[in-house]
């Protein structure tokens, strides 16, 4: 009993910490005016998610989460913010999808509570591990890195190859979009 508690309490603490990081960060993202601050809040959330990953034995993903999101994606955000000077000058504004904030709030609250309600009604998880069809049972500890690799190169082989296509098209697209257009201006 004590032992169980000794195990359980830290995990609750970890959860609370993760939740606090995630929610604070998320609220920061949607409320802060300055995009740089929003980006920092985003990092906070990402860290929180990483913590939640670690707490659920997805260490590798936690590391990748930090490397990919914090190390690359948010840096890219900051880059663009600084590069364009969006924080100081007027940014790239778009018409918000819903103009009434309270309306959106109500909508989102209803949707989320509906989601949570539905999940809770069906006891949160109803599936069974797809062991019979090439799925792998999750091992504990560091072994799941190996499992993850195996799974990606067997069950998700095609998906993995498809990500290559995805990344290439993204890179090509980004280059095409951001390319300078001096000549056309001169020509026109």
């Amino acid at each position: 009993m004590m032992l169980a508690l000794a195990y359980a309490v830290p995990s609750v603490i970890v959860f609370v910490a993760a939740a606090a990081l995630i929610l604070t960060g998320a609220i920061g993202v949607i409320s802060l005016k300055n995009p740089v601050h929003a980006a920092l809040s985003l990092i906070m959330t990402l860290f929180g998610v990483a913590v939640a990953f670690i707490a659920q034995q997805a260490d590798f993903l936690a590391a990748v989460q930090i490397i990919v999101y914090a190390g690359a994606i948010v840096v890219l955000f900051l880059f663009v913010i600084m590069f364009l000077g969006v924080d100081r000058r007027e940014g790239v504004d778009v018409q918000p999808l819903v103009s009434q904030k309270p309306l959106a709030l109500v909508g989102v609250v209803i949707t989320v509570s509906a989601i949570i309600f539905t999940m809770s009604r069906s006891s949160w998880v109803t599936g069974v591990p797809s062991l019979s069809l090439g799925g792998t049972r999750l091992a504990t500890g560091s072994h799941n890195v190996k499992q993850l690799g195996t799974s990606i190169f067997t069950t998700y082989l095609f998906a993995f190859e498809a990500t290559a296509a995805l990344l290439i098209i993204a890179v090509v697209g980004a280059v095409l979009l951001a390319r300078r257009e001096r000549v056309l201006e001169e020509a026109s």
Partner: peptide, 21 residues
Amino acid sequence: PPMGILVMLAMSGISVYGVML
């Protein structure tokens, strides 16, 4: 940690922020 050396990569990703910000 089980993700070992990835921590180093993650941290070198984070250290960018110090300089940038």
